[in-house]
């Protein structure tokens, strides 16, 4: 669908995650090439959100490795031994990775414009006028140029999520993570958000999208991964998997969500 290279941007290898005694991720391997849209589906509790959150270290990694570009996420490797990165170094890694949350998590005390400007000005130290211009362009790109002065509480869920996408894009990330971006939306508002994501995919952004929107996976996805019980059950071309799932568990899940 989109322009993809064979150059891997994200490599997840043997990822395990424990929450106390709960073994939530049981050895996940996933590679996402530059410019690829990788869609992850699965029942709730399958670990798909946890995996996504590990990629920008909102969850610590219990075992395994994640690298984005040439950077090992969360660690420095010295003589074969892993050393935890400092908070500042982790923050620097996160700047390259945009994230969109299920509950939007816009800053409620700032207008849409200032939500988008916040990180470029405060983190990258960009000039305010330059950041404002870029932010207005981004808001225009997500169809909300006229809502720049609105506070999040004055926007619909779909509008909030589009501001959240603009906010993540403002840091000019090389990778975008979407954690069920349409799950908290009224059905009629889902389309606008998906359209923004489709445009983003077409522009060549590398994306990992955890979602229940099978239609989006079929239309935009370059790869579909089905997770269940903390493991990858099936992974491959979205259209093939949706039309002809190989595993019984995938078949059962798809029959219920389609």
């Amino acid at each position: 669908m989109t322009i993809t290279t064979q150059k891997p941007l994200v490599r997840i290898e043997g990822l395990h995650k424990y929450f106390g005694p709960h073994h939530v991720l049981r050895g996940i391997d996933l590679t996402v090439n530059q410019g690829e849209v990788s869609v992850v589906i699965g029942p709730s509790g399958s670990g798909k959100s946890t995996m996504l959150r590990c990629v920008n270290l909102l969850e610590t990694i219990s075992a395994g490795r994640i690298s984005v570009g040439d950077q090992l996420i969360g660690y420095r490797e010295v003589n074969g031994r892993l050393h935890d990165l400092k908070v500042k170094e982790i923050a620097a890694q996160r700047r390259e990775i945009g994230m969109v949350f299920q509950r939007f998590n816009l800053f409620p005390h700032k207008t849409a414009l200032y939500n988008v400007m916040e990180a470029p000005v405060q983190v990258k130290g960009k000039n305010k006028a330059v950041a404002k211009k870029a932010a207005l362009e981004l808001l225009d790109r997500v169809g909300l140029a006229d809502r720049a002065n609105h506070y999040p509480a004055q926007l619909s869920g779909g509008q909030q999520q589009r501001v959240a996408i603009a906010r993540a894009l403002a840091m000019e990330p090389e990778l975008m993570l979407f954690d069920e971006p349409t799950s908290a939306l009224d059905p009629e508002l889902v389309g606008d958000v998906l359209n923004v994501m489709k445009d983003l995919a077409k522009s060549g952004m590398t994306m990992i999208v955890v979602t229940h929107e099978i239609g989006f996976a079929r239309e935009v996805g370059d790869r579909l991964t089905f997770m269940d019980g903390g493991v990858v059950v099936e992974s491959g071309d979205p259209r093939e998997i949706i039309a002809n799932p190989q595993h019984a568990r995938t078949k059962e899940f798809l029959s219920r969500v389609l």
């Binding site: 909102l58 908070v87 923050a91 700047r95 945009g98 949350f101 998590n105 816009l106 800053f107």
Partner: peptide, 18 residues
């Protein structure tokens, strides 16, 4: 304050003080 606020700010690469 909702924990999602801190997470969103962290995901943008903001430091603890900010």
């Amino acid at each position: 304050v909702d924990k999602g606020q801190t997470e969103a700010a962290e995901a943008l690469g903001m430091g603890k003080g900010k």
